[in-house]
């Protein structure tokens, strides 16, 4: 490992995260929102800007930047301006603990996955601020729906992770990847032991809850356009709206990365080893492949299922997901002690 001074190392890490967030978000926007959805609906999607419309996300970004920055007359100006920042900073902070290789991690915290879920939960604060400060009934209703939904689905999200933490014996994301790489399936250690095999209930819970955390269809009650215009984002325009938009897809990217790390083995690929230059070089590519796989699954659900009703959504979280995740924890704990 190169020996760098602390300020240089920190600057490189900050730069890496600042580059990964918009690039990751734009890749998801192009590949899934523009192209996959279009082809699923038997149309081409954007084709003009660049090869097969590859530059379309950049063009859209520039479009938002030159739009007028509107703040409603009755709004609470300071809070209105602050809200998108809270959302994007909460997303930004998640990236600090995601490992892209044996040494490629901003900060290998002992409480890694717990930290990621905790800072991820801060975005709901920004959503509530946005809805309230807009001085608009649709915005307020949207943010209240969002808060109710995010509180309800955060519990199964956190509880689904507990099973993995029990099995790996650590909360550090790097530690969880290593535990999967060194694991064995009935004595066969050739491909490690990705926890999707033993924790498939936790995996299903995690994917469903992250779908709800992203407020995507079928859980898009907070921004249901036929009822609430655009929910808490109704009054936002220009670069502030762009912040919300990038935040949404950057969170999808981050949650896919966490799911890939927890359940699919993260940066580890069988045969490439768990340390050394090869694993460090291949790690980001392997992780990116797994992220795209997870994101494909998440967006596939988004484009396929119709919206749930608010009461169905709450019933689903409190009466189904949370009890199932509690049973999953108990069973995992018993099996951990037994084997």
């Amino acid at each position: 490992m190169l020996a760098l001074s602390y300020p240089v190392e920190t600057a490189i890490k900050m730069g890496a995260v600042l580059a990964v967030i918009p690039v990751g978000a734009l890749i998801l926007v192009y590949v899934f929102l523009f192209k996959m959805m279009s082809h699923m609906q038997s149309r081409l999607g954007p084709m003009e800007a660049g090869f097969h419309g590859t530059l379309q996300p950049v063009v859209e970004g520039v479009k938002f930047l030159q739009k007028e920055d509107l703040i409603p007359n009755g709004a609470d100006r300071r809070i209105f301006a602050l809200a998108p920042l809270v959302v994007i900073i909460a997303t930004f902070l998640i990236y600090a603990v995601i490992p892209a290789g044996p040494d490629l991690v901003i900060s290998n915290l002992d409480v890694g996955v717990f930290y990621a879920l905790a800072v991820g939960s801060l975005s709901v604060l920004g959503v509530l601020m946005a809805g309230w400060a807009s001085a608009n009934k649709y915005s307020l209703l949207g943010s209240l729906r969002a808060a109710g939904q995010l509180i309800a689905y955060e519990l199964p999200l956190v509880l689904a992770v507990v099973g993995v933490v029990i099995q790996a014996g650590t909360m550090s994301l790097s530690g969880i990847v290593e535990a999967q790489a060194e694991g064995e399936i009935f004595g066969f250690g050739g491909i490690g032991n990705p926890y999707i095999l033993t924790q498939f209930i936790g995996f299903a819970l995690f994917v469903v809850s992250s779908q709800a955390e992203l407020t995507q269809a079928p859980f898009d009650m907070p921004i249901a356009e036929s009822e609430l215009v655009a929910g808490y984002m109704t009054e936002y325009s220009g670069f502030r709206f762009l912040f919300f938009f990038i935040g949404e897809f950057a969170t999808a990217f981050a949650l896919s990365a966490i799911a890939a790390t927890l359940f699919l083995g993260g940066w580890y690929f069988p045969g490439l080893g768990t340390d050394g230059a090869l694993a460090n070089l291949a790690g980001p590519i392997v992780l990116m492949g797994k992220i795209m796989l997870m994101a494909f699954f998440i967006f596939w659900m988004r484009f396929t299922y119709p919206r749930l009703r608010e009461d169905q959504l709450q019933t689903f979280a409190w009466k189904w997901l949370i009890p199932i995740s509690l049973v999953n924890i108990a069973v995992t704990g018993v099996l951990k002690v037994a084997f």
Binding site: G74, A75, D76, V111, F114, Y115, L117, A118, V119, S121, L122, V124, L125, L128, G131, W132, A133, A135, L140, S143, L144, A147, G148, L150, I151, E154
Partner: peptide, 27 residues
């Protein structure tokens, strides 16, 4: 981390939720 998850992520959010659900005029 517990402080952030429980107090900011849950309790204050619940405060705000309750305030906004009942009466929260701007100004």
């Amino acid at each position: 981390i517990v402080q952030i998850l429980v107090y900011i992520g849950a309790i204050v959010v619940l405060f705000l939720f309750g305030i906004m659900l009942t009466r929260a005029p701007i100004g």
